[in-house]
Protein backbone atom coordinates (compact mmCIF):
# COMPACT_ATOMS: atom_id res chain seq x y z
CA UNK A 1 0.00 0.00 0.00
CA UNK A 2 1.29 3.43 -0.89
CA UNK A 3 -1.06 5.36 1.37
CA UNK A 4 -2.83 4.95 4.70
CA UNK A 5 -5.92 6.45 6.23
CA UNK A 6 -4.99 9.48 8.31
CA UNK A 7 -6.50 10.67 11.58
CA UNK A 8 -8.91 13.32 10.18
CA UNK A 9 -10.35 10.76 7.74
CA UNK A 10 -10.77 8.21 10.56
CA UNK A 11 -12.54 10.80 12.64
CA UNK A 12 -14.86 11.78 9.79
CA UNK A 13 -15.57 8.12 9.00
CA UNK A 14 -16.34 7.26 12.63
CA UNK A 15 -18.69 10.24 12.87
CA UNK A 16 -20.41 9.40 9.57
CA UNK A 17 -19.39 12.67 7.93
CA UNK A 18 -17.79 11.16 4.81
CA UNK A 19 -19.48 11.16 1.45
CA UNK A 20 -20.68 7.70 0.37
CA UNK A 21 -17.92 7.44 -2.24
CA UNK A 22 -15.21 8.31 0.30
CA UNK A 23 -16.75 5.92 2.83
CA UNK A 24 -16.63 3.13 0.26
CA UNK A 25 -13.01 4.01 -0.52
CA UNK A 26 -12.07 3.71 3.17
CA UNK A 27 -13.82 0.35 3.49
CA UNK A 28 -12.24 -1.00 0.29
CA UNK A 29 -8.84 0.13 1.47
CA UNK A 30 -9.30 -1.64 4.83
CA UNK A 31 -9.88 -4.97 3.08
CA UNK A 32 -6.40 -4.90 1.59
CA UNK A 33 -4.43 -3.00 4.24
CA UNK A 34 -3.48 -4.84 7.46
CA UNK A 35 -1.88 -1.69 8.93
CA UNK A 36 -5.08 0.34 8.61
CA UNK A 37 -7.16 -2.58 9.92
CA UNK A 38 -4.91 -2.59 12.95
CA UNK A 39 -5.27 1.19 13.26
CA UNK A 40 -9.07 0.83 12.99
CA UNK A 41 -9.14 -1.17 16.21
CA UNK A 42 -7.83 1.79 18.15
CA UNK A 43 -10.40 4.08 16.52
CA UNK A 44 -13.42 2.09 17.71
CA UNK A 45 -14.19 1.73 21.43
CA UNK A 46 -14.09 -1.92 22.56
CA UNK A 47 -17.68 -1.73 23.81
CA UNK A 48 -18.92 -0.56 20.40
CA UNK A 49 -16.92 -3.25 18.61
CA UNK A 50 -18.32 -5.94 20.95
CA UNK A 51 -21.87 -4.72 20.39
CA UNK A 52 -21.41 -4.70 16.61
CA UNK A 53 -19.87 -8.17 16.70
CA UNK A 54 -22.70 -9.45 18.86
CA UNK A 55 -25.22 -8.08 16.36
CA UNK A 56 -23.34 -9.73 13.50
CA UNK A 57 -23.38 -13.07 15.33
CA UNK A 58 -27.06 -12.78 16.12
CA UNK A 59 -27.84 -11.97 12.50
CA UNK A 60 -26.01 -15.11 11.42
CA UNK A 61 -27.21 -17.45 14.16
CA UNK A 62 -30.73 -16.31 14.97
CA UNK A 63 -33.23 -18.16 12.84
CA UNK A 64 -35.27 -16.08 10.44
CA UNK A 65 -38.97 -16.78 10.93
CA UNK A 66 -40.14 -19.79 8.94
CA UNK A 67 -43.02 -19.55 6.46
CA UNK A 68 -45.61 -20.85 8.98
CA UNK A 69 -44.20 -18.43 11.59
CA UNK A 70 -44.49 -15.47 9.24
CA UNK A 71 -48.01 -16.53 8.25
CA UNK A 72 -49.03 -16.82 11.91
CA UNK A 73 -47.57 -13.42 12.73
CA UNK A 74 -49.50 -11.88 9.83
CA UNK A 75 -52.64 -13.41 11.30
CA UNK A 76 -51.93 -11.66 14.58
CA UNK A 77 -50.36 -14.55 16.52
CA UNK A 78 -47.85 -13.22 19.07
CA UNK A 79 -44.21 -13.86 18.01
CA UNK A 80 -43.57 -16.01 21.13
CA UNK A 81 -46.64 -18.11 20.44
CA UNK A 82 -45.52 -18.52 16.83
CA UNK A 83 -42.14 -19.83 18.06
CA UNK A 84 -43.89 -22.28 20.38
CA UNK A 85 -46.40 -23.45 17.78
CA UNK A 86 -43.96 -24.00 14.99
CA UNK A 87 -41.02 -25.23 17.06
CA UNK A 88 -39.58 -28.39 15.68
CA UNK A 89 -40.25 -29.89 12.34
CA UNK A 90 -42.42 -32.28 14.35
CA UNK A 91 -45.22 -29.85 13.77
CA UNK A 92 -45.21 -30.70 10.09
CA UNK A 93 -46.37 -34.20 11.00
CA UNK A 94 -49.83 -33.25 12.32
CA UNK A 95 -50.40 -31.00 9.34
CA UNK A 96 -49.39 -33.75 6.95
CA UNK A 97 -51.59 -36.26 8.78
CA UNK A 98 -54.57 -33.91 8.77
CA UNK A 99 -54.32 -33.01 5.11
CA UNK A 100 -53.38 -36.57 4.11
CA UNK A 101 -56.32 -38.04 5.98
CA UNK A 102 -58.63 -35.47 4.43
CA UNK A 103 -57.46 -36.42 0.93
CA UNK A 104 -57.90 -40.13 1.66
CA UNK A 105 -61.37 -39.38 3.01
CA UNK A 106 -62.22 -37.53 -0.20
CA UNK A 107 -61.05 -40.48 -2.28
CA UNK A 108 -63.09 -42.95 -0.21
CA UNK A 109 -66.21 -40.84 -0.27
CA UNK A 110 -66.05 -39.48 -3.77
CA UNK A 111 -64.49 -42.26 -5.77
CA UNK A 112 -65.63 -45.47 -4.11
CA UNK A 113 -68.89 -45.53 -6.06
CA UNK A 114 -71.01 -45.71 -2.92
CA UNK A 115 -74.74 -45.12 -2.92
CA UNK A 116 -75.98 -41.75 -1.55
CA UNK A 117 -76.76 -43.06 1.97
CA UNK A 118 -73.47 -44.94 2.34
CA UNK A 119 -71.57 -41.99 0.88
CA UNK A 120 -73.09 -39.63 3.44
CA UNK A 121 -72.38 -42.08 6.24
CA UNK A 122 -68.76 -42.52 5.10
CA UNK A 123 -68.26 -38.75 4.96
CA UNK A 124 -69.78 -38.22 8.40
CA UNK A 125 -67.69 -41.06 9.81
CA UNK A 126 -64.40 -39.77 8.41
CA UNK A 127 -64.59 -35.97 8.24
CA UNK A 128 -64.93 -35.28 12.02
CA UNK A 129 -61.90 -37.47 12.64
CA UNK A 130 -59.59 -35.18 10.63
CA UNK A 131 -59.31 -32.52 13.38
CA UNK A 132 -59.15 -35.27 16.02
CA UNK A 133 -56.14 -36.81 14.32
CA UNK A 134 -54.54 -33.41 13.78
CA UNK A 135 -54.88 -32.53 17.48
CA UNK A 136 -53.74 -35.92 18.75
CA UNK A 137 -50.70 -36.01 16.50
CA UNK A 138 -49.81 -32.42 17.38
CA UNK A 139 -50.01 -33.39 21.06
CA UNK A 140 -47.90 -36.48 20.42
CA UNK A 141 -45.37 -34.39 18.53
CA UNK A 142 -44.47 -32.72 21.84
CA UNK A 143 -43.36 -36.00 23.33
CA UNK A 144 -39.67 -35.99 22.38
CA UNK A 145 -39.22 -32.70 24.22
CA UNK A 146 -41.57 -33.50 27.10
CA UNK A 147 -38.74 -34.17 29.53
CA UNK A 148 -37.22 -30.77 28.80
CA UNK A 149 -40.53 -28.92 28.78
CA UNK A 150 -41.90 -30.39 32.01
CA UNK A 151 -39.71 -28.35 34.38
CA UNK A 152 -40.33 -25.06 32.53
CA UNK A 153 -42.87 -22.55 33.87
CA UNK A 154 -44.75 -22.41 30.55
CA UNK A 155 -48.33 -23.70 30.85
CA UNK A 156 -48.57 -27.18 29.35
CA UNK A 157 -52.29 -26.70 28.73
CA UNK A 158 -51.60 -23.50 26.81
CA UNK A 159 -48.91 -25.31 24.83
CA UNK A 160 -51.25 -28.16 23.91
CA UNK A 161 -54.10 -25.83 23.01
CA UNK A 162 -51.88 -23.53 20.92
CA UNK A 163 -50.67 -26.44 18.87
CA UNK A 164 -54.15 -27.93 18.65
CA UNK A 165 -55.48 -24.59 17.39
CA UNK A 166 -52.76 -24.41 14.76
CA UNK A 167 -53.47 -27.98 13.63
CA UNK A 168 -57.18 -27.21 13.41
CA UNK A 169 -56.46 -24.09 11.39
CA UNK A 170 -55.26 -26.41 8.62
CA UNK A 171 -57.44 -29.46 9.22
CA UNK A 172 -60.82 -27.72 9.32
CA UNK A 173 -60.52 -25.75 6.05
CA UNK A 174 -59.04 -28.83 4.34
CA UNK A 175 -62.03 -30.94 5.35
CA UNK A 176 -64.48 -28.21 4.43
CA UNK A 177 -62.92 -28.06 0.98
CA UNK A 178 -63.64 -31.75 0.53
CA UNK A 179 -67.26 -31.27 1.52
CA UNK A 180 -67.57 -28.51 -1.06
CA UNK A 181 -65.58 -30.15 -3.86
CA UNK A 182 -66.94 -33.70 -3.76
CA UNK A 183 -70.25 -33.89 -5.66
CA UNK A 184 -73.50 -34.23 -3.71
CA UNK A 185 -71.86 -33.32 -0.39
CA UNK A 186 -73.15 -29.76 -0.26
CA UNK A 187 -75.69 -30.44 2.47
CA UNK A 188 -73.04 -32.15 4.63
CA UNK A 189 -70.27 -29.61 4.00
CA UNK A 190 -70.84 -28.01 7.40
CA UNK A 191 -72.78 -30.73 9.23
CA UNK A 192 -69.58 -32.54 10.28
CA UNK A 193 -68.31 -29.52 12.21
CA UNK A 194 -70.42 -30.05 15.37
CA UNK A 195 -69.42 -33.74 15.73
CA UNK A 196 -65.82 -32.74 15.01
CA UNK A 197 -65.94 -30.20 17.84
CA UNK A 198 -67.31 -32.78 20.28
CA UNK A 199 -64.85 -35.49 19.24
CA UNK A 200 -61.85 -33.15 19.37
CA UNK A 201 -62.73 -32.04 22.89
CA UNK A 202 -63.31 -35.66 23.91
CA UNK A 203 -59.82 -36.44 22.60
CA UNK A 204 -58.33 -33.56 24.61
CA UNK A 205 -60.00 -34.86 27.78
CA UNK A 206 -58.81 -38.43 27.13
CA UNK A 207 -55.26 -37.17 26.48
CA UNK A 208 -55.05 -36.24 30.16
CA UNK A 209 -55.27 -39.97 30.98
CA UNK A 210 -54.12 -41.89 27.93
CA UNK A 211 -51.28 -42.03 25.43
CA UNK A 212 -51.89 -40.14 22.20
CA UNK A 213 -52.22 -43.20 19.97
CA UNK A 214 -54.61 -44.93 22.38
CA UNK A 215 -56.74 -41.80 22.43
CA UNK A 216 -56.82 -41.64 18.63
CA UNK A 217 -57.80 -45.31 18.31
CA UNK A 218 -60.48 -45.04 21.01
CA UNK A 219 -62.15 -41.92 19.64
CA UNK A 220 -61.95 -43.05 16.01
CA UNK A 221 -63.27 -46.56 16.64
CA UNK A 222 -66.07 -45.31 18.89
CA UNK A 223 -67.18 -42.70 16.37
CA UNK A 224 -67.02 -45.02 13.35
CA UNK A 225 -69.01 -47.63 15.31
CA UNK A 226 -71.72 -45.07 16.15
CA UNK A 227 -72.03 -43.97 12.51
CA UNK A 228 -72.02 -47.60 11.28
CA UNK A 229 -74.82 -48.51 13.70
CA UNK A 230 -76.83 -45.51 12.57
CA UNK A 231 -76.24 -46.53 8.95
CA UNK A 232 -77.47 -50.05 9.67
CA UNK A 233 -80.61 -48.56 11.23
CA UNK A 234 -80.87 -46.14 8.29
CA UNK A 235 -80.75 -43.22 10.74
CA UNK A 236 -77.59 -41.37 9.68
CA UNK A 237 -79.75 -38.27 9.14
CA UNK A 238 -80.08 -38.01 12.92
CA UNK A 239 -76.54 -36.60 12.98
CA UNK A 240 -77.39 -33.72 10.69
CA UNK A 241 -80.78 -32.68 12.11
CA UNK A 242 -80.84 -29.44 14.14
CA UNK A 243 -81.49 -31.49 17.29
CA UNK A 244 -78.51 -33.73 16.57
CA UNK A 245 -76.26 -30.74 15.90
CA UNK A 246 -77.37 -29.00 19.10
CA UNK A 247 -76.72 -32.21 21.04
CA UNK A 248 -73.09 -32.20 19.82
CA UNK A 249 -72.63 -28.56 20.80
CA UNK A 250 -74.09 -29.22 24.27
CA UNK A 251 -71.82 -32.26 24.63
CA UNK A 252 -68.89 -30.06 23.59
CA UNK A 253 -69.79 -27.61 26.35
CA UNK A 254 -69.79 -30.45 28.86
CA UNK A 255 -66.43 -31.65 27.62
CA UNK A 256 -64.93 -28.17 28.00
CA UNK A 257 -66.07 -28.24 31.61
CA UNK A 258 -64.62 -31.73 32.04
CA UNK A 259 -61.31 -30.56 30.57
CA UNK A 260 -61.12 -27.60 32.94
CA UNK A 261 -61.98 -29.78 35.94
CA UNK A 262 -59.53 -32.47 34.90
CA UNK A 263 -56.62 -30.06 34.41
CA UNK A 264 -57.37 -28.34 37.71
CA UNK A 265 -57.39 -31.69 39.51
CA UNK A 266 -54.16 -32.71 37.83
CA UNK A 267 -52.48 -29.49 38.91
CA UNK A 268 -53.61 -29.99 42.50
CA UNK A 269 -52.24 -33.51 42.41
CA UNK A 270 -48.91 -32.27 41.14
CA UNK A 271 -49.40 -33.53 37.60
CA UNK A 272 -49.62 -31.70 34.29
CA UNK A 273 -51.68 -31.81 31.17
Amino acid sequence: MTWHIDAPVWEAYAEGRLEPAAELSVESHLVGCPECRSAARSQVPARTADAVWSDVRLTISAPSPSLPQRAMQRLGVAPDDAVVISAADAFLVPWAVAVGFAVVSACVVGLAGLGPASRDAAFLALAPLVPVLAVVTSYDALDPLRELMAPTPYSKLRLALLRAAAALAVAVPATMMIGLVVPHMDDLALAWLAPALGLTLAALVLLTWLEAWVTAVLVASAWVTVVALLRVGDRVDALTTPLGQVAFVVAAGGLVLALVLRTSTLRLQGGEL
Partner: peptide, 23 residues
Protein backbone atom coordinates in the same frame (compact mmCIF):
# COMPACT_ATOMS: atom_id res chain seq x y z
CA UNK B 1 -32.43 -35.53 25.20
CA UNK B 2 -34.27 -36.23 21.97
CA UNK B 3 -33.57 -33.22 19.81
CA UNK B 4 -36.01 -32.03 17.17
CA UNK B 5 -34.80 -32.96 13.72
CA UNK B 6 -33.82 -30.14 11.46
CA UNK B 7 -33.67 -27.46 14.14
CA UNK B 8 -30.56 -25.31 14.55
CA UNK B 9 -28.77 -25.11 17.89
CA UNK B 10 -29.85 -21.48 18.24
CA UNK B 11 -33.51 -22.19 17.38
CA UNK B 12 -33.60 -25.04 19.89
CA UNK B 13 -32.34 -22.82 22.70
CA UNK B 14 -34.59 -19.98 21.54
CA UNK B 15 -37.60 -22.31 21.85
CA UNK B 16 -36.63 -23.48 25.34
CA UNK B 17 -35.98 -19.85 26.35
CA UNK B 18 -39.54 -18.95 25.29
CA UNK B 19 -40.81 -21.78 27.49
CA UNK B 20 -38.73 -20.27 30.29
CA UNK B 21 -40.61 -17.01 29.82
CA UNK B 22 -37.94 -14.99 28.03
CA UNK B 23 -40.50 -12.99 26.10
Amino acid sequence: VTFPRGMTAFAFLDYLAVLKEWT
